[in-house]
Design a binder for these strands. Structure first.
Lengths: 339, 339
DNA sequence: TATATTTGCTTAATCGATTAAGCAAATATA
DNA sequence: TATATTTGCTTAATCGATTAAGCAAATATA
């Protein structure tokens, strides 16, 4: 039979004829409680299957020991790996995490923030939705006086901590790799410039071309949503050019896969005729044929660092948040598509 | 500047010189509060940026409006799709969800349950970790008197609601499909029999072979963890048999992909020499070449149904949980690997 | 031996929101 | 006009855990 009434400190106190204050202190090993009482309390707590009521203690202490996490989606390897590591670090410090997904929707992101604030989380770690341009809901977090840490998809204007990879530099690494393989006409299927990370990748790509004295051809620079379909469509367009590219750097593995499908369907040899590089190091990049060269984003490191930043901010008496960027160097994983 | 002190009902009450009880009622549109007061209260609440303290109301009402979700991993398309739909239904009913991952670990699953109970969730929806055999931590949920609903990976012994697909029947559908394509020696790379769903798939496979008057060959029935590596290893073993199978039914898409890699590497034509069927309809099944025939698990439907079961149980005054199975028919998605 | 300190508890207030009970004024009904 | 009902609030208790303040007994120190 289900035991409806939960055991409270008072139940234990009544059983032992002491005050519930003493029970509370005994449970927390307060030095002013005798060992005898502590043992008695713990024995009875176990007997009655006592489980502390988190709501009550969080209310009283003004601290929920919960951290809210907002990601665009959990079903990408990058985000789920970041979360896994984050959780490991935070659990050790006594925090639990609440995961929410924005599904890349601005509206959903706003709702998630409301939910998390309502749940009285002690802080929020977020990666912004693609749609997000207006930042007022993030300002709401800051005005609540709890730490906010952004990762991967961040925004300088919020003046909070950010952890991510060096997107600008990643483009340099990719372009240099392709130039070394002898490529002269390197195209770029990128994301929209309004998203900071994609803007940086585009800028890095252009500057890297300049560095290697290659001409900038606007017909080879594309902005898109970076879906698989976008990759297919843009690759098809490239194939129709009089002067085809001999390499394509795609800012997402999904779009890169779409491009690869089109190349395979048109019997164009990858890497000999066209070299291909993706971004994100999704597991499928090593599974398709030819396997796709891609950029690893240090997901575990990012998870660990965001969690540590939170812990550091949470321990401050007087929270002051500043723009504080932790930028990691990305790593190129060379596979068959660019060998 | 961060506004440290959060606005409470009392702050609004003081501003308007009424009691905080009146403010609380006004915020909830109590019929015994005048429209004038309601408007005033809402105006001041907005002005002071009032946000209700969930901890306090949950403590008082004995209801957190939170539902805990436990899944093996979030980075599979199946689970993230189930969660998305679950969330949509529960949000509409005023509930928010807390997602946790067990990473297929029994220990992590126990910790997650403790965390969720500690957070005073109003119910738990779970899919069990592979490792889980001992069910005492799930019994703990039941003895807490809150609803427990299982999906996909369930267990009859707990006597709670379960939503999933018909695994036994799925094997029949797959075997019949392969037989129709002319296959005579159909192998099965399955999960471990101790997990109910995998046991059902194995039983269904054996019974379907019998139905089609095909011999049962123990060397063609494998139990494994169903990782990509398992798929590779077992496929290699099959290739070394004197009498190779002409079809392989793999109980997970990841293991099926491993098998496909080995077949491709050994220049064995799929589907002409060996037909291949996976399970789960992960997105990559349509991306690899040849694309992999797989079984769709109705993730959205499962998400919706589990959420609805929770809502129905949560509305009961006197919670009674029984074994109550909702079994959906799976759908075979035929692709190139078995055409 | 007299005073100071430590030990081991209790008392009472508190975190914010909610709600049962109740009261006075306004309005409705007989 | 006298009584009943409704309206619109207030008062006070409550959910459970925590903690500042304090008290009496035990022990240590001068």
């Amino acid at each position: 039979m289900a035991n409806k009434k939960r055991t409270t400190l008072k139940d234990i106190a009544n059983e032992l004829n002491i005050s519930s204050a003493a029970v509370s202190k005994a449970m927390h090993n307060d030095s002013r409680i005798s060992d005898k009482t502590k043992n008695e309390v713990k024995r009875v707590a176990k007997k009655l299957n006592y489980q502390p009521n988190h709501l009550a203690s969080a209310l009283r202490k003004g601290k929920s020991n919960l951290v809210g996490v907002i990601v665009p989606r959990t079903n990408s390897n990058f985000f789920s790996s970041v979360i896994e590591q984050m959780e490991a670090v935070l659990n050790k410090a006594g925090y639990n995490i609440i995961i929410t997904q924005s599904n890349e929707s601005f509206e959903k992101e706003c709702k998630n923030i409301d939910t998390l604030l309502y749940t009285q989380v002690d802080g929020i770690i977020a990666s912004m939705a693609n749609e997000t341009v207006d930042l007022s809901h993030y300002e709401k977090i800051k005005s609540n006086g709890i730490p906010l840490i952004l990762f991967d998809r961040g925004e300088n204007d919020l003046n909070v901590d950010y952890v991510g990879i060096n997107d600008y530099n990643s483009s340099h690494i990719i372009v240099t790799h392709l130039v070394e393989k002898g490529c002269k006409r390197i195209a770029h299927i990128g994301g929209y410039r309004r998203t900071r990370i994609f803007n940086n990748r585009i800028k890095g790509y252009i500057d890297a071309l300049k560095k290697h004295d290659l001409p900038i051809d606007d017909s080879l620079i594309i902005e898109s949503s970076l879906t698989l379909e976008d990759g297919r469509r843009e690759m098809l367009k490239f194939l129709k050019l009089k002067n085809r590219p001999d390499a394509v750097y795609v800012a997402s593995d999904y779009a890169a896969l779409g491009a690869l499908q089109v190349l395979n369907e048109n019997k164009i040899n990858v890497p000999n005729e066209v070299r291909l590089v993706g971004f994100g190091n999704e597991p499928f990049t090593s599974l398709v044929s030819p396997s796709i060269t891609s950029v690893a984003q240090h997901s575990k490191e990012i998870g660990r660092l965001t969690a540590e930043r939170f812990l550091s901010l949470a321990s401050q008496d007087d929270l002051k948040q500043d723009l504080n960027k932790l930028i990691l160097d990305a790593k190129l994983i060379v596979r068959d598509s660019s060998k």
